[in-house]
Design a protein around this nucleic acid. Structure first.
Length: 223
DNA sequence: GACCAGGCACATC
DNA sequence: GATGTGCATGGT
């Protein structure tokens, strides 16, 4: 059974890759922009996050110290299009404070530490939960961790591979147990799930266009 | 005009 | 420890 799951996770990746090609996920010019996006995208559509990031860039504010010392009302105004702007301004500042005080705003220095140490630290920052921490670890710090998000849950539950209520850590472990630990592949796998989630799995209970459709039946691989 | 979107923290039971 | 709720904008 374990080897079956392993084969299945591998085939899911292959099929998505064949269908979508390279995703080059996550979008963002710098690791800091990636971290900001990871916080702003919490329970929010990405198109709205892009607007807020554009605002930050236009205001020349997309730097840890700029955000840290920004006027609260001014920061909130820039974040407005991404929703939840009052909590997000606080969460963004919490991350920037940690990042500047501990690593002098330098992702290379941050990445010198181990995955486990960084994950524990990030989860201590108020406003950074498991998914946001793993986004930052994988795409900004280049640590091989598998990101689980709403699309991932949806894909697994739609295809009968896991219950959507399964806790985050269990889902992450499920992937990490059944995949080789490979940074590039983890980045692409998540990018592919996002692509598939956006294009095929948003509403339909059965997504007939889904590249995984023909493979999965009741959670078992179809020969 | 309802409903949803790549979460998280906190309160309550 | 499970479950519910506030946070808020913008697209469908």
């Amino acid at each position: 059974m374990s080897s079956t799951l392993r084969q299945m996770f591998s085939e899911i990746y292959d099929r998505l890759q064949t269908h979508f090609g390279p995703t080059h996920w996550w979008p963002g010019d710098t690791p800091f922009e990636i971290a900001v996006g990871a916080i702003l995208v919490q329970n929010t559509a990405w198109v709205n996050v892009e607007k807020a990031i554009r605002n930050l860039k236009a205001a020349d504010m997309l730097y840890p110290t700029s955000i840290l010392h920004a006027d609260e009302a001014a920061l909130q105004k820039l974040l407005r299009p991404s929703g939840f702007f009052r909590v997000k301004s606080v969460r963004l500042r919490n991350f920037c404070r940690y990042f500047v005080e501990r690593y002098d705003g330098d992702f290379e220095r941050m990445a010198e530490r181990s995955l486990e140490e960084l994950r524990a630290e990030l989860l201590q920052v108020p406003g950074i939960g498991p998914e946001t921490a793993d986004d930052i670890l994988l795409y900004a710090c280049n640590k091989p961790v598998f990101v689980v998000d709403a699309y991932t849950r949806r894909m697994l539950s739609r295809h009968g591979l896991a219950k959507s209520a399964m806790p985050y850590e269990e889902l992450r472990a499920l992937f990490e147990r059944n995949l080789d630990s490979d940074l590039h592949m983890f980045k692409e796998y998540h990018g592919l799930i996002v692509s598939a989630g956006k294009d095929f799995c948003r509403r339909a209970p059965k997504c007939e266009l889904c590249p995984l459709g023909p493979m999965l039946k009741n959670g078992r691989p179809k020969q």
